[in-house]
Design a protein around this nucleic acid. Structure first.
Length: 801
RNA sequence: GCAGGUGUGGCGGAACUGGCAGACGCACAUGACUCAAAAUCAUGCGGGAAACCAUGUGGGUUCGAGUCCCACCACCUGCACCA
């Protein structure tokens, strides 16, 4: 009887669906486990073979948890707002809703064909008004708590998508999505104050189980630095210029200042500045450069000196020049620096180029060739002389604080989150502008504020949202004073809906709250969240921020959304390159399922390599996995009643249970599969397997290959209920240990023989066995034994001379 | 430049707290079955005639190093004029 995967897989998929086998229970008295994968964006291309890698991994864990008796929530949904559907609409004049529905249907078919144990009754979709009602509701809460504000600022503007982007979406100066150059543009934007949570986003990482590389990347991105702010007085003005520095100890070496071209003080002092035209011209040139050009040009520093005004170094009263240069960023610190060319590489370069004074204030290094950035003893620094770096920093800070010209200051690289998009296919920002009352949120009882149906999806040339043309929709009345008012026309970024979706899974049909208190109390936090590294500084950080906010206002019961976060490696094409249509190396999961079946695909994706590392697709290897499942199928021919084949055989089983039980927790799925393969090889050797062994084996394999094992369980073994909730096999530790073991014998560290010894044998017993071994004796004959080392149950080493 | 990671047969990869390097799979070879092929089953498979040599390179610690330490090299990922 051949293994007919097509028939068998279809049969059990229908069975599971009818029986709602994988639905989470609402019995909150049981211990729960909430596993989460990143819900997909339903693209027109359908499922990528990368998706099932992550989904299978957590499916394996979810299935194991069910067998371990947990109430398991393993949900699925669609993150369906986004640009591709909108761009498709612009081209083909098909409403994004239609394409989204079509794509969701296709994804659903594909996901179901792979036998994931999702609870489909909890499916969510971010574009559903019942869902985005709550996305909007959260935004309104953010606004009410002062965490959402509108401001005009230079933003990253994608010249291709004609849309503003968050810092996180700009990669190498180009748009993460379309690859067009990104330029700076002044625009009025909704912003979210993620910076207010910067410190907590760092600190609370200590309490959660994220992979270290994920923590490191988030900490790096938030970019905390400690230093001081120092006020500099100016000549011919009573204004001051404040700088941020991490090296206040080098203040005596500050020989000039540099401010960002966009620094507002230029305008404030325009009457005192004699070369304002020259400065304006420099600023203009700088703003025309895209981020990409700026970093390309970062080898050669440029700048212009501000004429007619100088700064006064507060520690020694020296007048020092002020320059503008684009190597100082308006977005970081105060947009102004004190330049210490002797001890800062960038300042050194700039000073050399423009012939500015360089005064060393730390001993060591050679100022004539490069900046000295190391530690040393302070010189030329009056009251700091003789101190090392840290002592000098401390002393200077207290001096500055005492004189009230400076203070300790912590800075972050993290910027507030640019939250507006000038696009149609997103959640409308539920805000109304009233001439008298300013920005007023749409009243909560009027949510959701639904997207109007429109015909023209093109953003306007000046970069306004397509909604800006919908005058009927825009014109409304102020909820506060009742006067005519206008709606916000920008929509939310794609990251909005995904920032809280895991909460909705706990209670997806609730129309009173985003989820009930009881459901949140029971299900959250997510126990295990797996996703891509590319979301570490985007989605993962954003959702931690939203969650913390919701915690602060009492909506969720925990300060962190996810107790554990792991990540999967990417799947590359067979040529080792990223899969792409243009390279022609795309593998369609549908084809694999057709040719080999879902179980084979799942097993292969778990076997192809370490889960967290990238792996290249191989059509040859996948055949090996198909062959393995064929061999599993044929095991039923060896099925016998009666006892195990031998004691050793029994041990093999217990060792395998132990290995699989442990490896799954560490996501070492590849070694689980190799354990299964070894087991099958053992069964084939003796051509015999009893029912207990077969059941155990099938149960372990079920996590990876649910269809074939359900068939073997119910048909070959004759059970009439699903294998899903069978108790997870246990192993007997004592049966994983051999009574007799083979240990290597080395002479001078070189392997010479193997001897069989009783487990835990005493050293003198082993010594006797070793010394009665012919090969060993041949190797030590006529030599002096200097030393003998026995490591219990491991190795015996004889050192001779 | 900063942070994180990787480097083991022809290939993907195993190897617990230092203890038989190469599990498992692919490819390949041989045999059985077959008129034949495929499939299947079985056996072999790092290099070398051997002594031995082999885990990116060079040192070190140790009875013993893929694993620990030092110095490098190569590649990947993220960030990058962050004061």
């Amino acid at each position: 009887m051949a293994y007919n995967f097509k028939e068998i897989e279809k049969k059990w998929q229908e069975y599971w669906e009818q029986n709602k086998t994988f639905n989470a229970s609402n019995d909150f008295s049981k211990e729960k486990w909430f596993g989460l994968i990143e819900f997909p964006y339903p693209s027109g291309q359908g499922l990528h073979v990368g998706h099932p890698r992550s989904y299978t991994a957590l499916d394996v864990i979810a299935r194991k948890r069910r067998m371990q008796g947990y109430n398991v929530l393993y949900p699925i949904g669609f993150d369906a707002f986004g640009l591709p559907a909108e761009n498709f609409a612009i081209k083909n004049h098909i409403h994004p809703k239609i394409t989204t529905e079509r794509n969701v249907a296709n994804f659903t078919r594909q996901l179901k064909s792979l036998g994931f144990s999702f609870d489909w009754d909890r499916e969510i979709n971010t574009t559903n008004p019942d869902y985005y009602k709550w996305t909007q509701w959260i935004f309104v809460q953010l606004f009410k708590h002062g965490l959402a504000y509108k401001t005009t600022m230079p933003i990253n503007f994608c010249t291709g998508c004609k849309v503003g982007l968050a810092n996180e979406e700009v990669v190498n100066g180009v748009c993460e999505r379309c690859g067009s150059p990104v330029v700076q543009k002044e625009k009025s934007q909704w912003m979210l104050k993620i910076t207010k949570y910067a410190q907590r986003l760092i600190d609370d990482l200590d309490d959660i189980n994220f992979l270290n590389k994920i923590k490191a990347q988030q900490i790096n991105w938030i970019g905390k630095s400690e230093g001081a702010e120092v006020k500099f007085n100016l000549t011919s003005s009573n204004k001051t210029l404040t700088v941020y520095t991490t090296r206040p100890d080098t203040l005596f070496g500050a020989t000039y200042m540099v401010i960002a071209p966009e620094h507002p003080i230029i305008k404030e002092l325009q009457n005192s500045i004699t070369n304002i035209d020259e400065l304006e011209e420099y600023k203009k040139q700088a703003s025309l450069k895209s981020e990409f050009e700026r970093s390309e040009l970062n080898k050669e520093k440029t700048g212009v000196e501000i004429k007619g005004i100088k700064a006064i170094n507060p520690v020694n009263g020296k007048e020092i020049p002020i320059w503008i240069s684009d190597y100082v960023l308006i977005t970081y610190g105060t947009g102004a620096i004190m330049a210490v060319p002797a001890h800062d590489t960038r300042d050194y370069e700039f000073a050399k180029k423009f012939g500015l004074e360089i005064i060393p204030v730390l001993d060591g290094g050679d100022i004539s060739s490069e900046a000295f950035t190391g530690d040393g003893i302070h010189i030329n620094s009056e009251f700091l002389n003789g101190l090392n770096k840290q002592d000098a920093i401390d002393k200077m800070i207290s001096w500055l604080e005492e004189k009230q010209i400076g203070a300790k200051k912590v800075n972050y690289k993290l910027r507030d989150w640019v939250f507006s998009r000038q696009r149609y296919w997103g959640e409308p920002i539920p805000m109304i502008y009233c001439e008298d009352c300013g920005w007023v949120p749409v009243p909560e009882e009027q949510l959701p504020l639904t997207l109007p149906e429109i015909e023209d999806y093109e953003p306007s040339e000046n970069g306004e949202s397509p909604l800006s043309k919908q005058t009927d929709w825009i014109n409304t009345t102020c909820p506060h004073c009742g006067k005519p008012a206008k709606r916000e026309t920008d929509t939310m970024p794609q990251w909005a809906g995904s920032s809280w979706y895991y909460l909705r899974y706990t209670d997806p049909h609730n129309d009173k709250e985003l989820a009930s208190k009881e459901a949140l109390e029971y299900w959250t936090p997510v126990d295990w969240y797996n996703g891509g590294m590319e979301h570490t500084t985007l989605h993962l950080l954003y959702s931690r921020f939203w969650h913390k906010f919701l915690y602060d206002i009492g909506v969720v019961p925990t300060p962190e959304p996810y107790s554990k976060r792991t990540s999967h490696g990417m799947i590359l094409g067979s040529n080792g390159e990223k899969m792409s249509k243009s390279k022609g190396n795309v593998v369609n999961p549908d084809d694999i399922v057709n040719e080999f079946g879902a179980d084979t695909l799942r097993v292969y994706e778990m076997f192809m390599g370490p889960f967290d590392q990238t792996a290249a697709w191989s059509m040859e290897s996948i055949r090996g996995c198909a062959k393995f499942l064929d061999r599993v199928w044929n095991l039923q021919d060896f099925l016998v009643d009666g006892d195990t084949y031998s004691k050793d055989f029994e041990k093999t089983m217990h060792k395998a249970i132990k290995k699989v039980t442990e490896d799954i927790e560490e996501m070492k799925f590849n070694t689980c599969i190799s354990t299964f393969m070894s087991m099958v090889n053992e069964f084939y050797k003796v051509k015999r397997i009893n029912k207990a062994e077969f059941s155990t084996f099938i149960q372990l394999l079920n996590l990876f290959a649910p269809h074939i094992t359900e068939e073997l369980w119910q048909v070959a073994l004759g059970h009439n209920t699903t294998i899903t909730y069978e108790k997870w096999p246990e192993y007997d530790e004592s049966k994983t240990i051999d009574d007799e073991i083979n240990i290597p014998v080395q002479v001078n560290g070189k392997l010479r023989a193997n001897v069989l010894i009783p487990l835990d044998a005493e050293e003198d017993v082993v010594k006797n066995i070793v010394h009665s071994n012919e090969i060993v004796n041949r190797n030590i004959d006529g030599k002096n034994i200097v030393k003998e080392i026995y490591v219990k149950n491991k190795i015996y080493n004889i050192v001779v001379r």
